[in-house]
Amino acid sequence: MNIFRLCGDMSHLAAIIILLLKMWKTRSVAGISGKSQILFATVFTARYLDLFTSFISIYNTCMKVFFIGTVYFTIYLIYMKFKATYDSNHDSFRVEFLIVPVGGLAFLVNHEFAPLEIIWTFSIYLESVAILPQLFMISKTGEAETITSHYLFALGSYRALYLCNWIYRYYAEGFFDLIAVVAGVVQTILYCDFFYLYITKVMKGKKISLPA
């Protein structure tokens, strides 16, 4: 564990807590993409298959349980509890256009042609594009609530911090995972235009409004 990875995990934790607070306080899921949350649930389920079989640390297990638990709770809030406020018309990204290519790529490009490794690779590739339905929804509605902007900033920062973690681990431990790094770079790049809007607008107290 290193400071970059710890900050990354805390940023990821903060993003999920911000999202849950937004939904619980406003009792609304307006502006939140249910499809992205379903993709995140798929990512965590595919990635944490070893949750009950290999114990790494209390921290590792607690975080995995928290991430899996909260993402399914988020889906429950979107599609059941606060269903009336879910904007399905704007959450129209065709996720099959993500899942099929990502699934195919996981079969072709992986570290080892073994079931667990391919499923893990699938979760890494899927996570890098899982935010697209959410960003697509914001571009369709033309604006994002400030709290949603904070959620996205924390979520985007988490993988950017993981990139720093991988740089550190390369020099400190000689650890290098090309698949995770490339997917992490793609994932962080997808947030760049949002980061720009966040820093130039939200930091000055304005709302984010994209040219619809």
Binding site: D9, D50, T53, S54, L116, W120
Partner: peptide
């Protein structure tokens, strides 16, 4: 099998 398949990052 799954036991020695370890990914230590979240």
């Amino acid at each position: 099998d799954i036991a020695e398949w370890v990914k230590d990052e979240l």
